[in-house]
């Protein structure tokens, strides 16, 4: 780890003022400390967000519901309101990482966690997501889990997080503070596709601080399904979150998002169209999963991702009708 100075601002204004070149914010630190140890992050100054009271501000009786960005994953998942009204979010958190990590990891940090691509995590490999302008080592090297959706010749790494996928299906937003103002951004619009600038991961600026996650009143029911290479404590091979309005067994409206198979949390209008207005049968749910990948040319390499992503969508849809 490289030497760095540590700043501990006590409010949001100080935290925003502490940002600058070579500065990194640290919340729970479960991504930041890991990457600093690998020299993937080497800030000269680390700014701790733990004392910033504004990031803990939570309003459960508001519309939208507000969860402070500094609330831990464990705290958020334990809220009865989250468990009862936003089951997709509760499941996405429960199925992420381990109990120890969820006890310190925060909502803001979870959204902005970094890719698990082994070349990104190896400071000596070229990687355009880590160092602007570098070629992508994974293109010619070995990356088992490549993004099927949203990849570019400059980066093929999937977005690793679970929570953002559920938040996209729930049409949630984040509130963020910039030096000049407070902005609200839909989680669906927060992340960029890599294009030719994979290092630009979100639409936020470098020194901006996420202050809260905002949840609109739930419409219908929701579910989150995560497929993993082992029974627990693993990143998603594929995941899907669905928020569904049903009239008996007919779908009035569906919001469907995929994870693990795309460079960013991926909302699929194709999957949504495949079920909207239809009776939610197993066959229809299966067709919706397939529809999410209809625009993708099948290759030997993406077969597995497509199959898993499609089945995750199917399972999440069927979970919404209670089976």
């Amino acid at each position: 780890m490289r030497p760095f100075e540590y700043a501990r601002p006590s409010d949001l204004a100080q935290a925003l003022a502490a940002a600058g070149p070579d500065t990194v914010f640290i919340a729970g630190g479960t991504t930041v400390v890991d990457l600093m140890r690998l020299d993937v992050l080497a800030p000269r100054r680390l700014v701790g967000l733990g004392d910033v009271a504004e990031l803990r501000r939570t309003e459960l009786d508001g519309d939208p519901v507000r969860l402070g960005a500094g609330v831990t994953m464990a705290e958020a998942a334990a809220l009865p309101l989250v468990r009862e009204r936003y089951p997709a979010l509760a499941a996405a958190i429960d199925l992420a990482a381990s109990a120890q990590i969820r006890n310190v990891a925060t909502l803001g940090g979870n959204l902005l966690q970094k890719t698990r691509c082994p070349y990104f995590r190896d400071a000596s490999s070229p990687c355009g997501r880590r160092r602007p302008g570098d070629a992508c080592s994974a293109l010619t090297g070995h990356l088992e889990q490549r993004a099927v959706l949203g990849a570019s010749p400059h980066c093929v790494a999937p977005y690793p997080g679970d929570m953002a996928v559920a938040l996209v299906a729930l049409e949630a937003s984040v509130e963020a503070a910039t030096a000049a103002k407070v902005v609200t951004v839909q989680v669906a619009d927060l992340f960029r596709e890599p294009g030719d600038a994979p290092h630009k991961e979100t639409v936020l600026g470098d020194g901006d601080i996420i202050t809260a996650v905002l949840l609109p009143a739930p419409r219908g029911t929701s579910a989150f399904v995560k497929l993993r290479d082992r029974a627990s404590f693993a990143f998603a091979a594929a995941s899907a979150a669905v928020s569904l309005e049903l009239d008996h067994d007919r779908v009035v409206a569906a919001r469907i998002a995929l994870g693990g198979v795309a460079t960013r949390p991926w909302r699929s209008s194709e999957a949504e169209s495949a079920v909207s207005g239809e009776r939610l049968t197993p066959e229809r749910a299966f067709a919706a999963g397939e529809a999410a990948f209809e625009a993708v040319a099948r290759t030997h390499e993406n077969r597995r991702g497509i199959a898993l992503g499609a089945r995750a969508v199917t399972a999440a849809l069927l979970a919404c009708r209670g089976g």
Binding site: I26, V33, I101
Partner: peptide
């Protein structure tokens, strides 16, 4: 040293955490 094994588990302020992923200053 990467958060995957749990050997470093201790409690901080009453909850179990991974001591390898926490900086002492925090």
């Amino acid at each position: 040293g990467q958060g995957t094994c749990g050997a470093c588990t201790v409690h901080v302020d009453g909850v179990r955490v991974l001591a390898c992923l926490l900086l002492a200053v925090t």
